[in-house]
Every structure is written in structure tokens, then in C-alpha cells.
């Protein structure tokens, strides 16, 4: 690389300060644009609220003296009251505490699946863009995986691996990777054609340096948007799997599992269904709205 020797340190510092100022202004513009879209702000609020719920679940329930696991037989199937804000379930467990702890499970799974599939998918997509043979192999593999409907692939994986939290994360990550890899690959192919990458190549930068330092930052926007949507679909899939008894095993308070247990009490205990259902729907809605807003901001040409 050519060194910036023609300028004095003061000039360079001034240039750097001007660049920072530009970046700050751009950020402020972006933030204003994001905030001007009411639906994405609603999404952001829901997402923040859910993450806070997940973080603070032990504190809040502890302060109220509630526990997600302790079953009090004489308090079975009680409707919402001051002592039990969301009522109690068929075993006399407090539904408020279980729903709050359920947020921990859902958010953890969404976050870990979203991040893992983004990291693995982006790496695969980046390397696929460098090599024709590798590209062909990886993309055919993605086509193959995508031909199996997501929920069926997840069910099959869970049946084979066995129902527990780790395996839910593994299955849902496998299901999400092809989508990210495709996006990363097609974006990387575009970016590699750009003049600045050619300039880097001419300047003698190594393959990996170009890939990770120059291509990666320029394909991140669509990947991040896809990650938000993967977060939402991981929450749906986990709830569906647990509802089928193939996800998080009981007695852990996952929303899907709670709904599965509540099925038998649909005539006698509406609160057993209503609260976990509303929380599941709200969090998925929140991440989808947030993702829509992010997409309009980061990636305005795609998707619409």
C-alpha cells in the first residue's frame, strides 16, 4: 500500500476528523430515517422490551416471589389474579413466571441461531465467491437443503439428534445457513467486480485480506437484514418444534411447550393459551417489523 507521506501529521489529523464528522452526520441521517418509519420504531420497541424481559426475568419474578417450576397443587388452573398476574396452569405453576422465563429461551435461541447462521453462511458465501468449483458444490448443496421445507428439515434433524436446547440450536442453524450463504455469495460476486477491489488486487493485497477487510464490510448490510428475519423465524420454528414435543423438553418453560400442554385446557383455562401465544406473536412481529425497517435503511433496492 502507498503510504500517505505527502501530508503532514496535522493535515492527516484534520482529514481524519473531517471523515469522522461525515460518518457521524450520515449516522444521524440514517437514525432519523429509521425513526421516521413508525412501524419499524414499534418493532424496535417490542424487540427491546422482549430482550429486557429475557434479561430481567429472574429479577422480576424473584421480587414478586414467583417461580416458573414450583407447582402448588391447590392453586391449579386459577385465572389471572393479583398474586398470579397471568393465572396458573394445570399443575399450579405460575404462568407469569413461566412466560418471562420462556422469553429467555426464545431470545437465546433466536440470537444464537441468527448469529451462528450469519457467521457460517457469510464465510461459506465469501469463499464460494472466490472459487468456481467450490461455488458450484456449495450452491448445489444449498439448493438441495432448500428443497426440503424448513419445518420438515428441522423436525427430521430433531428426531435424529434428540430433543434438547443444543439440538434445537443446531437444527435451526442448519436450516438458516443456505439463505445467508446465497445472499452473501451473490453480494460478494458483485462487490468483487468493483474497481476498488481491483485496485486492492493490483496493489498486491492477499486474497484473504481482500475478502475479509474489503469485501466483507460491503456485503454486511443484506446479511444483517437477513439475520433479523432469521431471528424471527427461529422463534417461530422453536415454538413449533416445542409445540410438537420435538423441541425444548418439558418442564422447561418454552412458549411452544406451554401451548402444547395448554391444548387440553382450551375449554377451561384460556389464560394458559393466551399469554404464551401473545408473547410469541409479539416477539415475531417485533423482529419482522424491525427487519423491514432495517432493510429499507440499509438495503433500499432489495425486497420491495
Amino acid at each position: 500500500m502507498q503510504k500517505d507521506t505527502a501530508r503532514t501529521p496535522e493535515e492527516r489529523a484534520a482529514l481524519e476528523a473531517a471523515r469522522r464528522q461525515l460518518v457521524r452526520e450520515q449516522r444521524a441521517v440514517n437514525l432519523r430515517r429509521f425513526l421516521s418509519n413508525r412501524l419499524s420504531v414499534v418493532g424496535l420497541c417490542i424487540v427491546t422490551l422482549m430482550l429486557l424481559t429475557a434479561l430481567l426475568a429472574p429479577v422480576v419474578t424473584g421480587a414478586m416471589g414467583l417461580d416458573p417450576y414450583s407447582a402448588v397443587v391447590r392453586d391449579r388452573l386459577k385465572p389471572p389474579s393479583a398474586a398470579h398476574p397471568f393465572g396458573t396452569d394445570n399443575l399450579g405453576r405460575d404462568i407469569f413466571a413461566r412466560v418471562l422465563y420462556g422469553a429467555r429461551i426464545s431470545m437465546t435461541i433466536g440470537l444464537v441461531v441468527g448469529l451462528l447462521s450469519a457467521i457460517i453462511g457469510t464465510t461459506l458465501g465469501l469463499y464460494a465467491s472466490t472459487n468456481k468449483v467450490l461455488d458450484n458444490v456449495l450452491m448445489r448443496l444449498c439448493d438441495g437443503l432448500k428443497a426440503i421445507p424448513n419445518i420438515l428439515l428441522a423436525i427430521t434433524l430433531m428426531a435424529v439428534l434428540g430433543a434438547n436446547m443444543h439440538n434445537v440450536i443446531i437444527s435451526l442453524t442448519v436450516v438458516s445457513i443456505p439463505g445467508v450463504a446465497r445472499i452473501a455469495r451473490s453480494q460478494a460476486l458483485l462487490v468483487r467486480e468493483q474497481t476498488y477491489v481491483e485496485a486492492m488486487r493490483a496493489a498486491g493485497a492477499g486474497k484473504n485480506r481482500i475478502l475479509w477487510r474489503h469485501v466483507l464490510p460491503n456485503i454486511l448490510s443484506p446479511v444483517i437484514v437477513q439475520m433479523t428475519f432469521n431471528f424471527a423465524s427461529a422463534i417461530i420454528s422453536e415454538a413449533s418444534l416445542s409445540f410438537l414435543g420435538a423441541g425444548i423438553p418439558i418442564p422447561a418453560p418454552s412458549w411452544g411447550g406451554m401451548l402444547n400442554e395448554a391444548r387440553a385446557y382450551i375449554y377451561t383455562g384460556w389464560w394458559m393459551i393466551a399469554f404464551p401465544a401473545v408473547f410469541t406473536m409479539l416477539s415475531v412481529l417485533g423482529f419482522n417489523l424491525f427487519g423491514d425497517g432495517l432493510r429499507d435503511l440499509l438495503d433500499p433496492l432489495s425486497g420491495r
Partner: peptide, 11 residues
């Protein structure tokens, strides 16, 4: 349509 997309079928 946004609500529909966010609503798992079993819910």
C-alpha cells in the same frame, strides 16, 4: 399481511 407473516400457524 405483516400480521399474517408474523403469526405461526398453530397460534
Amino acid at each position: 399481511s405483516i400480521m399474517g407473516i408474523s403469526l405461526p400457524s398453530f397460534l
